[in-house]
Design a protein around this nucleic acid. Structure first.
Lengths: 332, 332
DNA sequence: GTGAAAGCGCTAACAC
DNA sequence: GTGTTAGCGCTTTCAC
């Protein structure tokens, strides 16, 4: 690998001069700049970020903590973040934690050792100890698609409450009165908010809230299916289900099928996230869309401001979800 | 951030000693080792990888070039690679290139500047210039799920030919005689091989190969759908379709539905990859499974050996695909 | 406009 | 067993 010394020698200047043309700092005559640039191009010289990081204290690397990159929703979020990060000159290190606090901690330590410029977090609601630590260490962090109510931290998320409200309202307008909800995990804020929005819609329309219609499920297809099978096996099964994410919703659709029910004729289903999956299944899923592109853009914005230090106070950016009506819902 | 000097001072030793306990090199008495370790723990000291990288020439970072992390197949591959990389002490920088040579080049330059220890490539078949360059630069590389026939480079992939053969044989055994194939892109080796396997199966069973039944399509759902609509609109539509990946297969299923055909009663469909999507749709998709876990494990193995230099020659590891029979295929 | 030199946090050779 | 010291490839002051 060529170093700055090779370039300097070849161009007949000092390494300081080369450094200045690389970083476009100081004042260099057009003539020497051109000469240096030519040499760099000819040698195919790539300045070492690791060397410059040592003095500049910048690695141009961002960590992304997510539950699982193989989960379609988070994969889409990651892609959006990657693109925006790239535009701002950052690379992305992905860290799939499975929401496991010990993996979270291990990954955070790796990111610290590698001097990541910032860490974006979409995992570990329960683990606010982690974030407190990061905050104390002054590591720039930003949270996406999660809510950390008690912590002063930059956040971008969707209005989950509104999302739940939109989903339930849609079903109510279609004439449904017995609407179940399947949540991922009520200890997770966003899940709770979605259910709260659902409940609010019911109440506004004078529908009594039935606690037993709210179920909690592991957040994958199987979980949704099992939970829905229970719900549908009740004496008075619901005519519609609001699932807190698309994977759960698919599970509900599968459960309906297994019970010999047709979606949407016998059972309406609304999901959440609007992942690729929602468009792929049959019937296509009515779901609450998160503006993933915008979220990626905003979080990269937030963390890069945080890194640059031109940021007086923390922000919480709340984006509005949108209901996407497809084929999995219909009038009773 | 605490440095090695802080630890040394606090523990009353030299920085060399601290370095030795960090790296478990040299000989240190148990007593001083313990003292140093205690201090490190107390201060929550994280050794700087960027500083050590400068002398060790190791960043413990691997680049992963893929078409799109939001594509379920590649997301699953990435997850597998991430896990195995982590076990070997490496972090993963993901680079979604959209198969765009200019993005590939940009990402490769970033990875070089950051001194990534190695680059894993699952993108850009056409772009063997890129790989030649990397090879010449002595950057450790390994290719996954792609084939670079003319290049001496470590590779792990599935036997695509066998995969196509398995898919077609399955359909033939079910009594199908008019079997279409939809390929992603015939300039891509793996696609070509899958079609070749399909063709071989036909010939072995004395079924005349009909060129017009092989179609090429953009590799997403919409593409598969459009292509399948054409195929199904022919005077003698096929009774079965082998699609070269699950996304295309979904498109075929959607097309069938649009034509009022039932899958598998009127049309059998086989996919490739066995992504989460195959299990989610209705009917669940019969598909050729790639052993994603094993592939991730193998490629990390290969590249880490390459990095460590204990590797005399390049290898090409060919894993065997397996047909997973689900509900999208049936006898004619 | 340009260059000399100190220093970023660490490793590794060598001395003791 | 432990410490001294010269780099690793770059940035940044400060002189000229």
């Amino acid at each position: 690998m060529a170093t700055i010394y090779d370039i300097a020698k070849e161009a007949g200047v000092s390494i300081a001069t080369v450094s200045k043309v690389i970083n476009q700092t100081g004042r260099i005559s057009d003539k020497t700049r051109k000469r240096v640039q030519d040499v760099m191009k000819r040698i195919d010289y790539q300045p070492s970020v690791v060397a410059s990081a040592l003095t500049k204290k910048r690695t141009y690397t961002l960590g992304l903590l997510i539950p699982d990159i193989a989960n379609p929703f988070f994969a889409e979020v990651a892609r959006s973040i990657e693109d925006h990060a790239q535009l701002m000159g950052y690379s992305l290190v992905i860290c799939s934690t499975d929401n496991d606090p010990s993996k979270e901690e291990r990954y955070v330590n790796v990111l610290r050792q590698k001097s990541a410029d910032g860490i974006m977090i979409a995992t570990g609601d329960r683990n606010d100890a982690l974030m407190k630590q990061l905050l104390k260490l002054k590591v720039p962090i930003a949270v996406i698609a999660r809510e950390m109510p008690a912590l002063a931290v930059d956040t971008v998320l969707v209005d989950d409450y509104l999302g739940g409200y939109l989903a339930a309202s849609h079903l109510i307008e279609l004439g449904h009165r017995s609407i179940a909800a399947i949540a991922e995990d009520l200890s997770v804020m966003s899940s709770r908010e979605r259910v709260r929005g659902y409940r609010q819609a019911l109440e506004e329309h004078g529908i009594a809230f039935d606690e037993s219609l709210v179920a909690v499920s592991p957040f994958h297809v199987e979980g949704g299916k099992k939970t829905a099978l229970n719900l549908l096996g009740r004496p008075n099964p619901p005519s519609a289900v609001f699932a807190c994410n698309d994977l759960l919703a698919i599970g509900v659709v599968q459960a309906a099928r297994e019970r010999g029910l047709s979606v949407p004729r016998d059972l309406s289903v609304v999901g959440f996230d609007n992942t690729i999956i929602a468009t792929i299944i049959d019937p296509p899923l009515t779901t609450v869309a998160q503006p993933v592109q915008e979220m990626g853009s905003q979080i990269v914005q937030l963390i890069s401001q945080e890194i640059d230090g031109n940021k007086s106070s923390k922000q919480r950016i709340v984006l509005l979800p949108e209901l996407v009506v497809r084929g999995s819902t219909s009038a009773v």
